[in-house]
Design a binder for these strands. Structure first.
Lengths: 204, 204
DNA sequence: TTGCAATATAAACACTGTTTAGTATCTTTG
DNA sequence: CAAAGATACTAAACAGTGTTTATATTGCAA
């Protein structure tokens, strides 16, 4: 049944066309400015057609979120290959913050918006990519705790601690709360704060 | 001119009525579910009337944000009266996280949403309440650095460090990212992570 | 009483996500 | 080959959103 297969492929192609348009428009107008009607207009189909390929807008945002994790992996490549656990944590932190600052809209979908999460709830899915990232960090923390004989014993608490640090830093920077309390030199402020965070845990 | 004054008062009263309705509706439907038309309906005026008292929706959200800081002050009362700088930081951290977890919508307006900030930009206002909070924290940090002879020398970097920690923790909790990586026992996870953050800096 | 200023609003504009009912095309079957 | 059926698509509607404009009503001063 080569014909049925071709139909499948055509269907997948349009689904992909929608996602590519969604991505393009999100990068142009931000996640707030992304709308089903704009996507439909962009690919020259009617808005209703989108709903033949996606349950709702949340599902589209969820798929974009998954694309975001692929993008983030590139920022983590140095960490993935680093042998020393503590240096790996430093590289994760730096990669995470760099990714967040350079990809505001992707970051928002992955770590702030509750819309892709609603889709996960609705469809009883897992937050696979996020879990993978967190587990990678937690495992690295476990190693670091052993290597340095840190007083922090629970690697998952330490991972949560680290994640909160960098997540807080990135979101405060993104929502312009940093610039408003400390005008100018945003870049160096962020770098110095990140250093402070890592040093407080590992450099003793 | 007692009459002109009464008019002024009447005008202020309707402005307040709008804000009270906005507050009530935000607490009922969340900040996402708050709309000009709902406010108008609630106070039995037309939507257009709102625009005689507020420039736009962002201005209303900005005024709600200011109310939020008043609310937050109550969570900080213990910190405000504590003499010891380090213990003051612990109390600030605990109050901040408690406030964030118990007042999701207020917190969102104050520290996440960019809509009240847009109003600040448009009207070249200052983020007064936020600045006050940050300065209070920074001053406390300065004291703590002196008292404990901490290796962290810049109190504003340390303040940013602390703020990022608690902000990250609160927002990860609010957006259900914590529950998804570590199901159950959310409360204790948060407490333990907050402890880990404070200990890493001060307990050495 | 006339005229002006203040106050409020109906209606419109340009959007949003989503659903429904209907059409047109393409495939399979008798 | 024609009829029947499945598939792909869409126009139009529904129920919302923020905001603006032109109009009407009200109350006060001259």
């Amino acid at each position: 049944m080569g014909l049925a297969e071709r139909k499948e492929r055509d269907k997948a192609e349009l689904k992909d066309l929608i996602l590519q348009a969604a991505k393009r428009l999100m990068l142009k107008d931000g996640q707030e400015g992304l709308s089903i009607r704009k996507i439909a207009n962009d690919i020259e189909y009617s808005p209703a057609t989108i709903y033949l390929y996606f349950k709702d807008k949340d599902e589209i945002l969820h798929e974009l979120m998954e694309m975001g994790f692929l993008k983030m992996n590139k920022y983590m490549s140095a960490a993935f290959t680093e042998q020393d656990a503590v240096r790996r944590i430093y590289l994760i932190g730096e990669g995470y913050v760099k990714f967040g600052l350079e990809n505001k809209d992707w970051y928002y979908l992955m770590f702030n918006s509750d819309k892709p999460m609603k889709h996960i709830e609705k469809c009883r899915e897992e937050w696979d990519e996020g879990m993978l990232m967190f587990d990678f960090l937690a495992n690295t923390c476990k190693e670091a705790i052993q290597n340095l004989s840190l007083k922090f014993k629970d690697e998952r608490i330490l991972a949560l601690h680290l994640w909160s640090c960098v997540h807080g830093l990135v979101t405060l920077a993104q929502s312009d709360r940093i610039e408003i309390v400390e005008a100018g030199q945003k870049e160096s402020l962020i770098t110095r704060t990140l250093d402070s965070m890592l040093i407080s845990i590992f450099d003793r």
